[in-house]
Structures are given as C-alpha cells and as structure tokens.
C-alpha cells in the first residue's frame, strides 16, 4: 500500500467537516426555518424588534465593555511592572498571576461568591457590580498573559532612544510603549470581551438574573426551541466574526499560549 504523509490529515479534515462545518450549516438551516420546516425570517426580525432581546444584547455589550475596561486597567500596569522589571524571579511572579486560569472556574466563582456574600450581605443588591467582579476574577489572567508576553519582548533600546531624544516619560509611554504593546492589548481584549458576553454561569452563580446573550441560548435550549436558539447562536457568531476581524484574530495566541 502506498503511504503518503498528506493522507495523515484526512481523518482530522473529515472530523472538522462533520463536527465543525456541518453543525454550523445545521445552525443556519434551523435559524431560518420554523417548527414545520418552512423558511422564515421571523426568528431574525423577532430578535431585532423585541425590546427584551435588544435589551439583552445591549446589557451583554455593556457588561462585556465594562469588564474588559476593568481587566485592562488592572492587567496593563501588572504586565508593565512585570514585563519591564529586571528581577530574576519575575517568571515565578508571572506564574502566580496566570496560575488561577488552571483552577476550575466554577470552583473559583464559588469561592468568590462566599467572600462577596460576607462583604455585601445580600448578593442580589448589586447584580451588575457582582457580574463585573465575577467576570474580572475569572478572566483577568487571560488578559495579563498576552500583555506580559508583548511587553516583556519590547526592545528597551527604543524607550531609551525616545528619552535620549528628549521625550518625557509620559510621551515615551504614549508614543512608543503603548503602540508597540497594541497586539497584546487586542489579544487580551478578545480573550475577555467575547466570554463576558456569553459566560452566563458567572451571572447565575452570583444571583444576577439578568440575561446576557449566552443565557438566551441556554433558555431556548431548556425550552427545546432549536430554531430560536439557532438564531441567537448565529447572531452571536456574527458578532464574534466582526470582533475577530477588528482585533486581527489574535485570540489563539493567548488561550493556546498559556502552556507553550
């Protein structure tokens, strides 16, 4: 039998077609049909005319934006301090910040919930605040890692050159360091923004009953409404596509880079 290295890829190619491409095609079919299998766009128009679903979309975007902003505000200085430090043990300290991402997220949120309950008394009093704290707690390591990777690789000679040429610290930071760390920022933002729109379990566990985009899919799933759920999935997929194009599709470097 003739053996070819190319043929090794065939099982995975078939796997991708069956378990990645086919489900998406089925999703499109279900999104644009009704229970009788007839073509309809009512799922689509329904989403954009119902104030409830539009409110969910708005709440998701707001929550994701605030969470991302908070994560970036906390992660950038951390990554900057660590990335520019000359400490020998800095890789150990970085590891401390990244380590929580390997602890099961539901257990970490459980721990956070117990502490927040002590601090706030009734969790239901501050739903939005708790959602932001929970998501920040969950996603912060994913923001720190790509930022640190980018900043630690910056050429120190460039900042020195900027200062030698008369730029003060603020200007050096704004015009040299910040633009050069942009790839890390984009990668970190996409690691936080998208999960923050969809990870409804964090909200559930912290007693925030407001829906985000992910919870809509969950509720359609519980109601066996495959058509409605497919449309939400498709809309979410479109948002993800737009977002990935805007940030240059740099997510895999962060999620996959954790162990490399």
């Amino acid at each position: 039998m003739h053996f070819s290295r190319k043929s090794l890829g065939i099982p995975y190619a078939v796997f991708l077609l069956v378990f990645v491409v086919l489900p998406l095609l089925v999703l499109v079919f279900y999104a644009f049909t009704n229970g009788q299998g007839q073509f309809t766009i009512s799922n689509f128009t329904g989403f954009f005319t119902d104030p409830n679903t539009l409110g969910t979309l708005f709440y998701s975007l707001l929550l994701a934006a605030v969470t991302t902003a908070v994560c970036l505000t906390l992660a950038y200085p951390t990554a900057y301090i660590l990335g520019t430090s000359k400490l020998k043990s800095r890789s150990v300290i970085v590891m401390l910040f990244v380590l929580p991402m390997w602890i099961n997220f539901s257990l970490r949120i459980t721990a956070l919930k117990e502490i927040l309950t002590i601090l706030e008394g009734n969790l239901a009093m501050y739903p939005f605040l708790n959602a932001v704290i929970g998501m920040t707690y969950d996603f912060l390591p994913f923001m720190i890692l790509p930022l640190y990777t980018t900043i630690s690789r910056l050429d120190g000679a460039l900042t020195e050159a900027a200062m030698d040429l008369g730029a003060d610290r603020t200007r050096t930071f704004l015009e040299v360091v910040l633009p050069l760390s942009l790839p890390g920022i984009l990668s970190g933002v996409s690691m936080v923004f998208l999960p923050a729109m969809t990870n409804y379990v964090v909200l559930d566990m912290l007693y925030n009953s407001t829906y985000i985009m992910g919870s809509l899919i969950g509720s359609y799933f519980s109601a066996y409404d495959w058509h409605g759920g497919s449309m939400i999935s498709l809309i979410l997929l479109a948002l993800i596509c737009i977002f990935t194009l805007l940030t240059g599709g740099s997510e895999e470097t962060a999620r996959g880079g954790a162990l490399l």
Partner: peptide
Amino acid sequence: AINQIPVVNADVVTGFSLCIL
C-alpha cells in the same frame, strides 16, 4: 481556517450547534 472556528467561537455556540446536529 476551519481549525480556527472552534478556537474563536463561543463555547455556548459550539455546544449548542453540536447538540442540534
């Protein structure tokens, strides 16, 4: 390109679409 889809996709969508198929 296809390999990239589950990487950038939300897990909710991946799970839901697999469940339907």
